[in-house]
Design a protein around this nucleic acid. Structure first.
Lengths: 237, 237
DNA sequence: GTGCAGGATGAAAAAATCATGAAAAGGAGT
DNA sequence: ACTCCTTTTCATGATTTTTTCATCCTGCAC
């Protein structure tokens, strides 16, 4: 990397979009609608779909979701609502949006008191759905990830252990918060290089390994898991 | 491999194309076109061809297809469309692409409302066809496969049993998700070798058997069925 | 039952991948 | 130029994975 002159104003900002790649569950019995929603949201998030309540419950029991979009009119009655308490108990940080053809105040109140976070009247604009989803996900996204003796403040991007700030160098910082922004996701070294280096192709050695090694040395626990042959993943230990 | 020092950056990308080995039916009355398409797609998929509608219907009644490429101009009229409802009834998860010389909006709408999933204007680029095929096949492929005590997330490529992630080594991972990408399809050891090895010809022992054995040891159920003399298949148990 | 073929599996050997200390290279401040 | 810190490179030893091989099982024909 050769920048021939010093240019202090343009601090290289690490441009990581922390609000993407959430995991969303859509429960909707109409096939067309389901595909349409999935298609639309898939550009930003990981989308699972379920066509029935039982299917949805099964998924909720095995995966952690950031948001649930629930069709109120499942199998005619208000069956859909029943999943909400169950979900909230299993996953208190999952945002719930109810979509329904009935738009009355009564309905809205019923939905919200069942535990939903928002209520959307059909037909709705896709952009509005996206906006509300993002807002709710933001609300629920924890600012702080805590594990024994290590506290990660995702908003301020700081690390704290035993009351002391842990200082990372810039590369260490970028790499760490890149991984931490999406717990459990496996990032290949190439993914990481693309995320935190301007010219990933110029990498010719095991730099990333070394950076990881140095991060680990500075932390009281090791939240970075190695997946041999595949890459690294942040693990909430 | 003689590398004087460790240079890990280019993780050998397990470039498994999970959308391979699908079964595709082409109904097209022009011989040249038919052969050309078959040739082009056969590198990735199993391709059946039919030169007429009746022939096509016959095939649809005896085989399960992942996709149908339909020439709209069969025997002059819009005869082609008639097969779509029949197919969708028999095989709701089969993707349908219509190819036509007429490219107007009217035509496109007519095609889609007849039940097609996509509409391609002739002449089209082969790569575009391949892309759209892949996209449609992906849409119809479920993201999550659940069986008692084992949940497979095809999107994030993770395995989950009793709330715990199951970690597979790279080869185990590649092999498992290759099989799981197409439930019930029997893959020969050669198919598997071609999919997950860079140099399949160098295989001289029962490596694949061993990998399968090791995968099975890690799972709480056995979703991999052995077909004596034929190969292995992923089974949704 | 016996024999056979194809498959499963434990264990050892071979190979690939990773962690890390140390040194070199790069940059900013003084 | 010197110092302090960060970043990258490289060699090495450690660990895990992958492959091989020998042996054991299992279903099936006889």
């Amino acid at each position: 990397m050769k920048r021939s002159f010093f240019h202090p104003l343009k601090e290289k900002k690490s441009k990581i979009n922390y609000n993407m790649c959430m995991r969303i569950l859509i429960i909707e019995d109409d096939l067309k609608m389901r595909l349409m929603l999935k298609d639309a949201l898939e550009a930003f998030h990981t989308v699972d779909v379920a066509s029935s309540l039982t299917e949805g419950i099964e998924l909720v029991e095995s995966y952690t979701y950031d948001a649930l979009l629930l069709d109120r009119n499942l199998s005619g009655a208000d069956e859909g609502m029943k999943i909400i308490p169950k979900l909230k108990k299993l996953q208190p940080t999952c945002a719930v949006i109810i979509a329904s053809a009935y738009g009355g105040v009564e309905e809205r109140i019923a939905g919200l008191s069942a535990g939903a976070d928002d209520y959307l009247e059909k037909p709705y604009d896709l952009r509005e759905l996206k906006m509300r989803l993002d807002a709710l996900i933001r609300r629920y996204t924890p600012d702080v990830i805590s594990m024994e003796s290590l506290h990660i403040d995702m908003k301020n991007e700081t690390l704290n252990a035993h009351g002391e700030l842990i200082l990372l160098s810039k590369k260490e910082h970028d790499l760490f918060f890149f991984l931490a922004s999406k717990p459990d996701k496996v990032f290949s070294r190439e993914d990481i290089a693309n995320a935190i280096y301007e010219d990933p192709s110029s990498m010719t050695s095991n730099t990333i390994d070394v950076v990881i090694s140095n991060i680990r040395k500075k932390l009281p626990v090791n939240p970075i898991e190695t997946l041999k042959g595949r890459g690294y993943a942040f693990k909430n230990v």
